[in-house]
């Protein structure tokens, strides 16, 4: 039976997801440039885990496997999660996080299109709560620490947990720029003193700020290609800027400048790639503004006053919960129902 419309735009879920994956590449390239190729190992590990978990779950749920593996959505979850985990982490960390994200946060909720929470962020949250130690040892940017591992040595550590003789993990890794800032602020140092440390770059963390530029670039491509709408990134970064700006203006020695917040942690990645996940974000434009503004507020609060190194993941998950309510109260007026008269 044929039915109308007979024609449709040549587009597909898998093409959309593929474009998002492509948009991540500039940021990933920057990452590799500054931190070495270890991140590629995590991305590969995560991708393999995601696809096999997805296939297994689809089989258990008796759903067709091929079309869903081809939709690229599991890969996207994998990449986003890999980018949130320290690159020099034991292999099982990536595997456990990704498998949890796909099996529990995505498939158990009904698979593609049905997950109320962003799966990658669920994976991250589970890891940081269960393995806080492993999750906070970030690989230092190249050139900042004395000891550096070759790629094969990195692989040895990732897969077998062996480091070269007389090298300790602490010598290779450091806390993230956001984490360092928080710790040193507790030691009563001023923002200005802290930012003079070598791990800081022009705006944010050395190296990580460049990755953020890469993600910003990819994000702008997503906007231009109309894969995402402007509402979430603009409301998120705008709100983050305003809140950070107010605190900074009032007390610049204790509150870091707004641009620092943009370019450290997962703020840019979150604004363009994580919060914009269509499935777990609101479907109304007004709702998107509220959702993103709320996420920015929570991000700032968690970063500044909370106990976790970054706030993007928890902010995302908390706002994910409120999506149905936000959508319900931001319904646009239907044609012909605009004026009350």
């Amino acid at each position: 039976m044929i039915f109308t419309p007979l024609i449709s735009k040549p587009d597909s879920v898998s093409a959309i997801m593929l474009k998002v994956l492509l948009a991540l590449l500039p940021g990933i390239a920057m990452y590799v440039w500054y931190f070495g190729p270890a991140i590629l190992v995590s991305i590969t590990l995560a991708s393999i885990t995601a696809l096999s978990t997805e296939a297994l779950m689809l089989k258990l749920r008796r759903r067709p496997i091929a079309p869903f593996l081809k939709d690229n959505s599991a890969l996207l979850t994998a990449w986003l999660l890999a980018l949130s985990i320290p690159p020099l982490a034991p292999w099982w960390l990536v595997v456990v996080g990704t498998a949890f994200a796909i099996a529990i946060a995505k498939q158990l909720y009904g698979g593609l299109g049905n997950n109320p929470f962003n799966p990658a962020m669920v994976g991250y949250a589970v890891l940081i709560i269960s393995f806080p130690m492993q999750m906070t040892h970030w690989l230092a940017p190249q050139g900042l620490v004395l000891t550096e591992l070759s790629f094969t040595q990195q692989l040895d550590y990732i897969f077998q947990g062996v480091l070269p003789h007389s090298v300790t993990l602490d010598a290779l890794t450091m806390a993230t720029p956001l984490d360092t800032l928080k710790t040193h602020l507790h030691l009563d140092e001023s923002v200005q003193q802290i930012l003079n440390m070598t791990i800081y770059g022009q705006i944010g963390g050395h190296g990580s700020e460049m990755a953020a530029w890469g993600f910003l670039f990819g994000g702008l491509y997503l906007l231009a290609a109309r894969i995402i709408s402007w509402h979430i990134p603009v409301a998120y970064l705008g709100t983050l800027f305003v809140i950070a700006g107010i605190f900074h203006l009032v007390d610049p020695t204790h509150y870091v400048a707004p641009l620092f917040h943009w370019f450290s942690g997962a703020a840019i990645l979150g604004a363009f790639f994580i919060l914009t996940d269509p499935v777990s974000s609101p479907t109304t434009n007004k709702g998107r503004l509220i959702f993103a503004a709320g996420a920015a507020f929570l991000t700032y609060m968690i970063r500044t006053f909370g106990g976790f190194p970054d706030g993007v993941a928890f902010a995302t998950l908390l706002m994910n919960i409120s999506v149905p309510l936000i959508v319900l109260y931001t319904q646009p007026k239907v044609f012909g129902k605009k004026d009350k008269s």
């Binding site: 587009d11 597909s12 879920v13 959309i16 079309p67 869903f68 939709d71 959505s73 698979g111 593609l112 299109g113 049905n114 709408s229 269509p278 499935v279 974000s281 479907t283 109304t284 319904q331 646009p332 007026k333 239907v334 044609f335 012909g336």
Partner: peptide
């Protein structure tokens, strides 16, 4: 093509001339 689940991408919302969801 065989249909996939709705991913709430709201392309349909953007296209709807009756301002529906």
């Amino acid at each position: 093509q065989p249909s996939m689940p709705c991913i709430r991408c709201t392309r349909c919302v953007e296209a709807c001339p009756a301002d529906l969801q």
